[in-house]
Simulated scan of single mutants.
Amino acid sequence: MDTAIIATNCPALKLLNRGKVRDMYAIPGHDDKLLMVATDRISAFDVIMAEPVPGKGRLLTAISLFWFDLLRDVMPNHLITANVDQYPEVCRQYGEQLEGRSMLVKKSRVVPIECIVRGYISGSLWSAYKKSGDGRVLGLDLPAGMQESAPFPEPIFTPSTKAEAGMHDENISLETMRQQVGAELTDKMAAASIALYRKAADYARGQGIIIADTKFEMGLDADGVLTLVDEVLTPDSSRFWPLESYRPGQGQPSFDKQFLRDYLATLDWNRKAPAPPLPPEILQKTAARYQEALKRLTA
């Protein structure tokens, strides 16, 4: 079994951030590049669990690399290479930590918006829809009489803020996004997000996976070109449902970390740190879902 990496240690590089999953490094002498490393940390309800999921970082990286390649004709992305032998020399000394779980990327000015696309009603949007009474949510008029997990007539774009560490993202309307980042950039990001989702969802459905929703992150590169950044269409950033068992009107089994969330929901926990300890079987079953997602997508 892959040795779990909870946190990387690369002292010759400058650690910029430890996120919920990724460690981000600046590279001395290479100001236009960053090194992203996917650890085996896993979070739920914005809380990082104490126990890692061995191999998770490698699976996330493999899935992101697959999608970056498939979607490169829809939108440029920040990937330079995931081959450690092609990294700057100062990085290569950490090859044992980086192999299979890292990406050398172009530095971009990240737009502080989560680009969420939903093809099906689930999660927080389903909760908001039930409470609305009239189907109007986040400035959108959603169809009347929808069931949980039902598809929308067309995919919808529902942005959210990018929260600081320890804070929760906040869903916002398109109008609020326009006020924050400008109308032109908002329209470009919304159109790109829908185009990315459509191509990915069509492909995944042919592989037996429904992409119920996902979130993208975008930035402006050195030339001001809008670029896809961070991870893309992984089980951490998306809801993946098995097509063969899909039934609207209820929650769906999934290939993402919803399994972990469902387990935690059975516990007497206030959803604040520290998280309760996770039994080995929960970690193993979570890992198996990530592995199944990668297997289906790349079959």
Results as ranks from 00 to 15, higher is better:
229 V>N: 02
242 P>Q: 14
218 M>W: 12
230 D>P: 06
227 T>P: 06
219 G>Y: 03
242 P>V: 08
209 I>K: 01
214 T>W: 11
214 T>Y: 02
240 F>T: 00
233 L>R: 05
240 F>G: 08
220 L>P: 00
234 T>G: 14
210 I>G: 02
224 G>Y: 09
224 G>M: 07
229 V>T: 15
214 T>K: 15
232 V>R: 13
220 L>D: 13
229 V>E: 04
226 L>I: 02
220 L>Q: 11
233 L>Q: 07
245 S>A: 14
209 I>A: 07
211 I>W: 02
227 T>G: 10
223 D>M: 01
207 Q>K: 15
208 G>L: 08
244 E>I: 06
205 R>E: 14
221 D>K: 11
212 A>S: 15
241 W>F: 13
218 M>R: 04
217 E>G: 12
239 R>V: 05
226 L>A: 05
219 G>C: 03
218 M>V: 12
231 E>Q: 12
216 F>W: 13
237 S>L: 03
230 D>I: 02
213 D>T: 11
222 A>N: 02
223 D>I: 00
205 R>A: 13
214 T>V: 10
223 D>W: 00
217 E>S: 15
208 G>P: 06
215 K>G: 10
215 K>H: 08
216 F>D: 14
205 R>S: 11
220 L>K: 04
246 Y>M: 08
228 L>R: 04
225 V>C: 03
211 I>K: 08
234 T>H: 02
225 V>K: 06
229 V>W: 05
204 A>F: 00
225 V>H: 06
205 R>F: 06
223 D>G: 11
223 D>S: 14
236 D>M: 06
235 P>G: 06
232 V>K: 02
234 T>D: 07
214 T>N: 09
216 F>S: 13
244 E>A: 01
241 W>N: 11
235 P>H: 01
241 W>T: 07
231 E>K: 03
211 I>F: 06
245 S>W: 08
212 A>L: 05
213 D>A: 04
241 W>L: 10
228 L>M: 14
213 D>R: 11
215 K>S: 12
242 P>G: 13
243 L>A: 14
240 F>Y: 15
223 D>A: 15
204 A>G: 06
237 S>H: 04
235 P>K: 07
208 G>I: 05
217 E>M: 10
233 L>K: 04
240 F>I: 05
215 K>I: 09
238 S>I: 10
241 W>S: 02
236 D>L: 09
246 Y>K: 02
229 V>M: 09
227 T>V: 14
240 F>W: 09
232 V>H: 13
242 P>L: 09
233 L>P: 09
224 G>C: 07
230 D>S: 09
230 D>M: 05
211 I>S: 10
212 A>V: 15
224 G>P: 07
